[in-house]
């Protein structure tokens, strides 16, 4: 069995006095979408932040592309091929859409063909190219946040609740964009509360509770098992509809 692109083994994270992650074991295979599900406060966002080096793991090991990255600094992880789309979008509101993307392209001016592809995925960004990101709608900011993460090819994208607070039309746009991104063999670790969204994209799934992964497997198996959904997520797919 090939080594997963990203793996966490017994990862613990403390934030101030709080013991957030309490031994996370997670494997993210390369070239697909892995959904990280769980109730609020289960530790999903903390897992992404720990992988990205924004919070330091106090114990355990994180490996990416065959390398130990547990103690790596955030800029080194980004340069090594990991992109991060935070839950809060975190676009630079004082900068225009163009400037946000220019800044995200570290290697120089963004590649024209790739940029064109991104702007096809998110046409709003083309329309508001020279507009300050701070005045965009929530959906447009989310598009910019994702576009910023993929403006250069990355091996792994960590995406934290990309549909949070978005209108259904924007969610549909986002789903189409991620499906297109998935076709490029980019590996995505997706934290999501919208089970339908996660089910539509993910090949594998991990469910967290109380700072640990309590279930890992194929998404199709979880989607087909109402009882498992109820036990792990508190809701079944049917009651979600």
């Amino acid at each position: 069995m090939p080594e997963p692109l990203l793996s966490l083994s017994g990862v613990h994270t403390h934030v101030g006095p709080y013991h957030i992650l309490q031994g996370v074991d997670l494997a993210v295979p390369g070239g697909g979408v892995t959904a990280l599900l769980g109730r609020n406060g289960a530790g999903k966002t903390s897992t992404l932040r720990t992988v990205m080096g924004l919070w330091r793991a106090s114990a355990g090991a994180i490996r990416f592309a065959g390398l130990e990255i547990t103690k790596a600094a955030t800029p080194d992880l980004a340069r090594g091929g990991i992109a991060y789309v935070p839950e809060t979008m975190s676009v630079f509101s004082d900068l225009t859409v163009r400037e946000n993307l220019v800044l995200a392209a570290r290697a120089g001016p963004p590649d024209a063909a790739r940029l064109d592809w991104i702007l096809t995925l998110f046409p709003a960004l083309r329309t508001f190219w020279s507009v300050a990101a701070g005045v965009l709608s929530g959906g447009q900011k989310q598009m910019l946040s994702v576009a910023r993460a993929i403006v250069e090819p990355r091996q792994l994208i960590l995406v934290d609740e990309p549909t949070k607070g978005l209108a259904p039309a924007v969610v549909a746009n986002m789903l189409a964009a991620f499906a297109e991104l998935k076709r490029t063999e980019t590996t995505i670790l997706l934290v999501e509360q919208n089970f339908h969204f996660a089910r539509s994209l993910a090949d594998t799934v991990a469910v967290m509770d109380n700072g640990r992964v309590v279930h890992a497997g194929r998404m199709a198996a979880l989607a087909a098992d109402d009882g498992l959904q109820r036990r792990l997520l508190g809701l079944s797919l049917d009651s979600h509809q």
Binding site: V131, L136, S137, Q140, A167, A169, A172
Partner: peptide, 15 residues
Amino acid sequence: MSASLDTTLKPVVPP
């Protein structure tokens, strides 16, 4: 519902 709704939503750009 059309997925392009939000893309045509013009931001309110303050003067």
